[in-house]
C-alpha cells in the first residue's frame, strides 16, 4: 500500500496547475447543510452477497440482537448426533457454523461498545459453535481411522466361504445370492452396482482388479459346475474377466470363446490394465445409446 503522505505528494505533482489559481469571493461561499451519517444515505444492492453475513439478509435493521433473543441455553451438536450425518451434511454444517460465528463476531464487535466491553454472552455462543466444528472434525477423523484399520484386516476367509456357498447354491436361491454378491463387491472391492456410477479415474484401481477376478472366478465357477468343460481354465487376465462383471455368465462365456478363437485374448501387462478397463467400461456404457441410435 502506498503511504498516505506519499500518495498526496505524488498526486499533487501530477495535478500541478499551469495557470495561477483564482479563488471565488469568500463572502459568497455558503456552507452546505451537514450530511447526517446514516446507512440510508448509501445505496447497497439488495442481492449483494455480503448480506449473507447479516442475520436477516438485506432486511437487517440492526446487527445486535437484544439479550433476550440470544439463545443462551443452546448447546453444541453431540458426537453421536454428528455420527449419523453424511460427509456432505457435515460439510454444510461446518460452513453454517462458520457463518454463524462470523455473525456473532460482528455482533460482539458492536456489543463491545454498547455493553462496555463485556462480550461474555457472545463468547459462550461462539464457544458452542467452535465445539461443534471441533466435533465435526473428530467425527470425520473417526471414520478415517476406521477406514484405515479396515485396510489392514483381510477378508479372504469370508470371501472363500461366500465362494463355496455361491457355487453350490440352489437355482432357487441364486437370485438372492446375486444380490448379495453385488453388495459384497461394493463393500469389499468398491465396485459400484451400476456401470453408470463409475468414476473412471478413481474407481479403477488395484482393489477393483482384485474384485473383478474374484467375481469372474465365482460366476465362471458356478457356470462350469452345471456345464463342465464349457471353457478352458484359467481365464487370461482382466481381458477375459471383465465380461463376467458386465454380462450374464452364458453371454460372457460365449464372448471369451470368441475372443480366444480370434486370437485377440492375451494377458495384459500391469501397466496396460487400468487403461484397458477404462476404455472397455466406457465402451460398454455407450452400448445402449448405440443400440437406441440403430433402432431409430
Amino acid at each position: 500500500m502506498i503511504s498516505a503522505r506519499r500518495a498526496i505528494l505524488v498526486s499533487a505533482r501530477t495535478l500541478q496547475r499551469t495557470k495561477p489559481l483564482r479563488f471565488a469571493d469568500p463572502k459568497k461561499i455558503r456552507l452546505r447543510e451537514p450530511i447526517v451519517p446514516t446507512h440510508k444515505n448509501f445505496d447497497v444492492s439488495p442481492d449483494h452477497p455480503l448480506w449473507a453475513f447479516f442475520r436477516d439478509g438485506n432486511k437487517t435493521e440492526t446487527v445486535l440482537r437484544s439479550k433476550d433473543d440470544l439463545s443462551t441455553d443452546s448447546r453444541p451438536w453431540d458426537m453421536p448426533e454428528l455420527r449419523l450425518k453424511s460427509f456432505d451434511d457435515l460439510h454444510r454444517l461446518w460452513y453454517l457454523n462458520a457463518l454463524e460465528r462470523n455473525r456473532i463476531s460482528t455482533e460482539a464487535e458492536v456489543a463491545k461498545e454498547i455493553y462496555n466491553g463485556d462480550v461474555s454472552l457472545f463468547t459462550k455462543l461462539d464457544d458452542n459453535h467452535l465445539m461443534t466444528q471441533k466435533r465435526i472434525k473428530q467425527t470425520l477423523l473417526e471414520r478415517q481411522v476406521a477406514y484405515e484399520r479396515a485396510q489392514l484386516s483381510s477378508p479372504e476367509e469370508y470371501l472363500q466361504l461366500f465362494e463355496d456357498k455361491y457355487i453350490n447354491a440352489d437355482e432357487s436361491a441364486i437370485a438372492e445370492y446375486n444380490e448379495k454378491l453385488v453388495r459384497l463387491q461394493y463393500a469389499i472391492f468398491g465396485i459400484e452396482p451400476d456401470l453408470s456410477e463409475y468414476n473412471l479415474e478413481e474407481d479403477i484401481n488395484v482393489k477393483f482388479v482384485e474384485g473383478l477376478s474374484y467375481v469372474a472366478k465365482l460366476k465362471l465357477g458356478r457356470y462350469l459346475a452345471s456345464n463342465p468343460g464349457a471353457l478352458e481354465l484359467p481365464l487370461n487376465g482382466v481381458m477375459e474377466e471383465l465380461p463376467f462383471l458386465v454380462r450374464d455368465p452364458e453371454v460372457a462365456v460365449e464372448e471369451v470363446r470368441a475372443m480366444r478363437e480370434e486370437g485377440v485374448s492375451r494377458k495384459l501387462d500391469n501397466i496396460e490394465v487400468f487403461a484397458f478397463l477404462r476404455n472397455a467400461i466406457e465402451a460398454v456404457r455407450s452400448e445402449p445409446e448405440e443400440l437406441a441410435e440403430e433402432e431409430n
Binding site: 455420527r83 449419523l84 477406514y147
Partner: peptide, 12 residues
C-alpha cells in the same frame, strides 16, 4: 444420512 457401505473407499 450416513451409512457405511464399503471399506474400499475413503469416507471423504
Amino acid at each position: 444420512t450416513h451409512e457405511l457401505q464399503t471399506v474400499a473407499k475413503s469416507p471423504f
